[in-house]
Design a protein around this nucleic acid. Structure first.
Lengths: 337, 337
DNA sequence: TCTGGCACTCCGTGTTCCCGAGTGCCAAGT
DNA sequence: ACTTGGCACTCGGGAACACGGAGTGCCAGA
């Protein structure tokens, strides 16, 4: 049904269209790729490809343009992820290595990815729920106020100011802190509620009200932040691409955390690398855009996701290479810090 | 030179042009505003205004459009800041009140401002150097690693992982923490270097190398963050405005922290409220845009700035009202937290 | 100093026309 | 059974053109 040559034609169409941004005709194809056959033959193949929905012509007497289905086939079977050049890899390393805290790692990552791919980059903060507790700190800041600081193994820091029901002496705070830490050190965040459940019973009775208040805030912190934080960068690249129409919608989608979450979120077929092409993606305002996303994390567990968003007409092999590489490096950085 | 009526004409031109986005002619003016004179008279006034550079006609036989100089006069002398409606004020309060930490306050503020003005909002994080130390925490995280956490009175938290030259027992850490806090509590961040300078001398000699390491990181943290953090939101509003040309440049400027800093930074004439119109602003890519900015802070000292950026053709009275109001509310929230 | 009248200037829109790229199909060739 | 060259056809997009209308500047009169 789709012999070898038809696939080659499709591949050539995608490549040419991506690089020229103009519908590609049979003549141009035989000129730029040596397919060894005449334009007429190509036309027959193109008719077949169109018949099956892989390409489409905007008007009679125009060249062909790949459809979403065509891109899909291209990504799945006709292309190979293009690794980064050594120079690019070095650039990534040096650029990311300079970051001093989590905020900066994320910030640098998203900028790097935007610059590397010349598209909009999106990075999700490492998930709280999948990381583990490194330290819990309780700090008195006023007579009846304490600050709770939670530090995770990914370097994330959460803090809350808590009103406690009564003034508490410093040594009692210190004791509570010690107990908490001995319980929670290394504990997965999703296991915290369980671990903490019967903790008040092990405390002197007079400390229980305070402890309960603090613990409830701690638990709240965990669930509240389950809706993750996401940042993006490179919006200027959108304007550069000929996004004349729909730019508005795309920008709006980018500012909706929820939409972004869903785009990055649902994981795909390839191990770790998800490509969602045009109409495949769940949000109607993004019909004309594709998403290339990957999970990242320290070690083997996926902490969060990152990716880029660009016009359907993007250079998939290069983009996929960049996303995969950046995801790996960020993982390493997080593991090492 | 500019009598009362000419000013009225200028005001009318600005108002009409802002609302219709089309060059406004003498006929339209007499129709929409009752100026009590005929179109011919208006034409004479317009000729005078053009002569002096307040308005400009794109082509012969087109209406007039305000120049930057015209907008400037309008802002300075012809308009009054328009206060928000009660409903809007309530909306601000409830929206900002829900924030739990500094990140969220800033995030909500920038979104709120974008939504309120339908333009791009820009918010600078409260300056570290102008705030004071609320607490310093030193937390051992591994054999030879400690985490330094600095909490300021604005709720900002900075943390750094530090490699120390030798393993340090917990009680020595605790002692160092106590000393640090007793020195620094309430200390203005800019005074920290001085305050801390001779601190190692007051410690047991064996603690000094460790203390020195930690202190140097602490000082580094202070200066590093002097280049402030800035966020923006509402880019979609740019696309909605008819920014057909230059959108690219504007988006690029928005992603350049440095440019944003300068835009917000230099404070202007009105107490706390800066308006920079079109070519008045320092960055060439932003020729077609105006910035309305204000300082905000808890109490009377200005911690940082916020503002909006939009086309020169913006509704200045309303925008200025919104910016001023939001700045005030954020100040209150920060003071109260 | 204001006003009505008048000739003039262009912008934007709509129309028409034409060129060229690209197609589909067919008949002939391998 | 494919492939190929030839050919008529289609249609989009740019150039040329005309025209209506909004707006102007200027002048003479009130």
């Amino acid at each position: 049904m789709l012999d070898e040559r038809k696939l080659a034609v499709l591949r050539a169409i995608v490549e040419d269209y991506v690089s020229t941004n103009e519908p590609v005709g049979s003549k141009a194809l035989t000129d730029r790729h040596n397919l060894g056959v005449s334009p007429a033959t190509i036309r027959n193949d193109m008719a077949a490809l169109e018949e099956q929905g892989y390409i489409h012509q905007p008007h009679t007497s125009a060249g062909r343009v790949p459809t979403d289905k065509g891109y899909r086939l291209f990504v799945d079977r006709l292309s190979q992820i293009k690794p980064l050049s050594a120079a690019e890899r070095r650039a990534i390393e040096t650029f990311l290595a300079g970051a001093v805290d989590l905020d900066e790692i994320v910030m640098r990552t998203v900028r790097l990815l935007a610059q590397l791919t010349r598209q909009v980059a999106v990075v999700q903060y490492p998930s709280l729920t999948r990381s583990t507790v490194r330290h819990v700190e309780i700090v008195p800041v006023a007579e009846r106020r304490v600050m709770l600081v939670l530090i995770t193994n990914t370097g994330r820091v959460e803090q809350r100011v808590i009103e406690v029901p009564e003034a508490v002496a410093d040594d009692r705070i210190a004791h509570l802190r010690a107990v908490l830490n001995s319980c929670l050190d290394g504990c997965g965040l999703s296991d915290v509620p369980e671990t903490v459940a019967e903790l008040p019973d092990r405390l002197p009775i007079e400390d229980r009200p305070v402890a309960a208040t603090i613990l409830s805030v701690l638990l709240e912190t965990l669930v509240e932040r389950h809706e993750e934080k996401i940042v993006f960068a490179g919006a200027a690249n959108l304007a550069a691409a000929d996004f004349s129409v729909g730019l508005r919608e795309v920008l709006e989608a980018l500012e909706e955390q929820v939409v972004l979450m869903r785009l990055l979120g649902e994981t795909g077929d390839l191990p770790g690398l998800t490509v969602r092409i045009g109409s495949e993606n769940p949000y109607t305002g993004l019909r004309g855009t594709s998403i290339v996303a990957a999970g990242y994390g320290s070690g083997d567990k996926e902490l969060a996701r990152l990716g880029v968003l660009g016009p359907t007409r993007m250079d998939y092999p290069v983009t996929m290479g960049a996303v995969r590489a950046v995801a790996r490096y960020v993982g390493q950085i997080l593991a090492g810090s």
